[in-house]
Design a protein around this nucleic acid. Structure first.
Lengths: 343, 343
DNA sequence: GTTAGCACTCACATCCCTTGAGTGCTAATT
DNA sequence: AATTAGCACTCAAGGGATGTGAGTGCTAAC
C-alpha cells in the first residue's frame, strides 16, 4: 500500500518525532543523510501520507506528527519484522542472588524496566493459578485471636489474622487445624475453597461442634479476595516527558494509578507475547493519549503475570519492545528456576 | 507583643487565605462582620504586622499573605490553646471489624485521613520495639530451599524464602529448627540477633556440623534490615491544591515520595504529640514550601509509629490538628486492644 | 517525476495598553 | 490621639496588535 519512499519518510518522521517531540517539517527531513529528495518532494509525499491517515498536522502550517494509525503501522510493519531475539541479560545480577524472594525479583524487575526506559512500569505479580498448598498453619496468639498462614509450593506466604469466635472451643480449633492440614496439603490454591466445602465439611462435622460457624470463619479467613499485587516502578518518570506539561493530565494519570484494581484490569492481558496499545485504542480515559505495552511472562502451561509499560504515544517502541521481550523471557526463566527448585 | 486588634486581623487574614489561596486586601477584611474598622485602619495594622514579619506581600500593591512566621504564630498561640479533646470516632467502623489485621488498620487510617483532609497522608507502621517472637517456623519447600516464618505476639508475620546451602545437611537443618524454636520463643524481636549469637550458637555447636555457615545463613535470613513500612494515602490529593500548578513542583514532590527511606526519616518524630513543621522549617528541599504535621501513636511505654500529613503551608491547621489528635488517640486505642487480646 | 519558487498560514513571542484590586500617605474627622 | 476618607501610585493580569519564522500547498520550470 505504501511505496518504498513513503515508508521511508514515515519512518524518518516517526523516529524524529519520538526523539524530539516536535512536529517534523519537510526541510529537516530532506537534509537527513539517507534522504536524497528535496523538501518539495517530501512535502508531496507527506500530503499523501496525511491523506492516508498516517500523519497529522497540529495546525495548517505546522510540520507533521505521526497519527495513531501511523504509530500502529510503524509498530506492526516496521518494527515487528525486524525484531530479533536478543539476549540482554538485564536481570543477570538479580537472579544470581539466591536470597531474593520471588516478589523481590518482580519488584526489582519493575524498577529496572522503568530506570532503563524512563517510562512507568507496572508488573502484575504472578497469579496463583497453578500453585498448590504446601502447608497450612494456624497459630493462636491468644484465646481470642490467631493467625493463619498459608504457604504455597512456590514459596509464597499469605497470612491473615483473625478473631476466634467466642462460641468456638479451643479444642475444636485444634481439631480443625489438624484435619485441615492433613487434607488440604497439595491441593491447588484455586481449588481450596471447593475442596474445603465438598470434602472436609463432612469430616469436620464429626469432630467439631458448630460446623456452620467454623465454615463461615474459614471462608472469611482464606478466601477474602486477595487484592492483586502490583509492582509499580518509576511513577514519577513519566513527569519527565514533555507531553506531561499540564497539571490536568498529571492529575488524571496519578488518579488512575492510585486505583490498583483499575490498573490491574487494564494490563491483564489474556494473550501471550507483546501487545501494544496506542492512544485511543486504550479503553481507559486517563491514558487515551498514552501508549501501553504489555508482555506476559509465564511458567509452563499457564500464564502467570504481566509486565506493562506506560509512556507517551511518542514512545521508543523499538527499544521498549526489544527490552520487554528480553525481560519477559528472563523473568520466565528465573521463575522456572524457582519452580524447579521446589520440586 | 501583638495587640488584640492585630491578632484579630492576623487571624482573619490567615483564615481567609487558607480558604481562598488569594492575597487578602484591606477592603475585604473591613467588610467582614466581626471587623468594625475601616479599610484604612486595617491597612495601617497590616503594615505593622508586615514589619513584624507576620505578613508578606506578593508584590508592592498586592494584598497580604501570611508569612511562615505568621503561620507559626497562628499555630502556636491561636490554635493550640483552643484545642479541646474531641471524640470523633473517625475509625469507629474499622476497629469494630475484628477481621482486620493491624497493617490493614493502619492502611485504612491513612486512606481515611487523606480522604477527609484532601492532603497526602503518610503513616509509618508501628515499629517492632516491644514485640516478642511468638513462633518461628521453617518450612522446607524442596531440598534446596525453604521459607522461614516469624510470627510476633502482635500477630505480625514476616517471611523470607532462602536457599539452603549445599553444605548443609537436611538433618542439621531440622535439628537447628528445633533448637531455635525452643530457645527463641518469647524473645523480644530486637534482641533476637543478640540471643542468637550469645546463647544459641554454643548449643548449636553440639548438634550441627558447620556452625559458621549456619550462623551466616540465619543472620542473613532473619536480620536483613526490613525496609520500613510506609502507608501512603491520597498521593494525588495534593495535586488538587492550587499551589501545585507547575510541573516542577509536582515532579520534585513525587520524586521525594518515591524515596521511602527519605520519607520515613522525614516523619520519624522522636517526641510525642503533634508537631507542625512549616515551610522552610522542613529540612527536605522538596517540601520547603509545604507544611508537614506529624503525630505519634504509641502503645504503652514505647513510641510505635507516626502519622503524618503533607499539604501546602496554607493548610487547614485547626481542622487537621484536631483530626490527627483524634486519630492518633484512636489508633493507640485500637492497637492497645490488639495487644491486650494477645496477652 | 522532481524540484525551485513564492504566496500564504499560523503558533508563538513581544510589546503596549487598559483595568482593577490593592497599597501608602496625608489631611480631615471624631 | 486614634480613626477614617481621599487620592496618587503600583503592579499583575488580561487583551489586542504586530512581527517573526517555520512550515505548508501550489504552480511552473527542469
Amino acid at each position: 500500500m505504501l511505496t518504498e519512499r513513503q515508508l521511508l519518510i514515515l519512518q524518518v518522521i516517526i523516529d524524529d518525532f519520538i526523539e524530539s517531540a516536535h512536529p517534523v517539517g519537510s526541510r529537516v527531513i530532506s537534509k537527513k543523510g539517507n534522504i536524497p529528495y528535496s523538501a518539495a518532494t517530501i512535502r508531496n509525499e507527506m500530503a499523501d501520507l496525511e491523506e492516508m491517515g498516517y500523519l497529522e498536522k497540529t495546525h495548517t502550517s505546522s510540520g507533521r506528527i505521526p497519527s495513531e494509525k501511523g504509530y500502529r503501522y510503524y509498530v506492526d510493519y516496521v518494527i515487528a519484522p525486524t525484531l530479533k531475539k536478543t539476549n540482554l541479560h538485564i536481570m543477570k545480577h538479580i537472579v544470581q542472588d539466591g536470597f531474593l524472594e520471588m516478589e523481590q525479583v518482580v519488584q526489582k524487575a519493575a524498577e529496572i524496566l522503568s530506570d532503563i526506559t524512563n517510562y512507568t512500569s507496572i508488573i502484575l505479580g504472578p497469579e496463583i493459578f497453578n500453585t498448590k498448598l504446601k502447608q497450612l498453619q494456624i497459630i493462636p496468639l491468644s484465646h481470642r485471636s490467631a493467625v493463619a498462614i498459608l504457604i504455597t509450593d512456590a514459596g509464597h506466604v499469605e497470612h491473615r489474622t483473625f478473631t476466634v469466635p467466642a462460641q468456638m472451643q479451643a479444642s475444636d480449633l485444634e481439631k480443625m487445624i489438624n484435619i485441615l492440614n492433613s487434607r488440604l496439603q497439595g491441593v491447588p490454591m484455586l481449588r481450596l475453597q471447593h475442596v474445603l466445602h465438598s470434602e472436609i465439611m463432612a469430616l469436620l462435622n464429626k469432630y467439631v461442634n458448630d460446623v456452620e460457624i467454623a465454615y463461615d470463619y474459614l471462608s472469611s479467613v482464606f478466601f477474602s479476595d486477595q487484592p492483586v499485587k502490583l509492582y509499580i516502578g518509576g511513577k514519577s518518570n513519566i513527569l519527565m516527558q514533555p507531553e506531561f506539561n499540564n497539571v490536568e493530565k498529571i492529575r488524571s494519570f496519578y488518579s488512575m494509578m492510585e486505583n490498583e484494581d483499575e490498573v490491574a484490569d487494564l494490563i491483564k492481558s489474556s494473550q501471550n507475547g507483546i501487545k501494544v496499545t496506542i492512544g485511543n485504542e486504550n479503553k481507559l480515559e486517563a491514558i487515551k493519549d498514552l501508549s501501553l505495552i504489555t508482555a506476559s511472562y509465564d511458567i509452563g502451561e499457564n500464564q502467570m503475570g504481566t509486565i506493562a509499560l506506560i509512556g507517551p504515544t511518542r514512545m521508543e517502541y523499538r527499544k521498549v519492545i526489544t527490552l520487554m521481550n528480553a525481560l519477559s523471557e528472563e523473568m520466565t526463566q528465573a521463575l522456572h528456576h524457582w519452580y524447579q527448585d521446589k520440586e
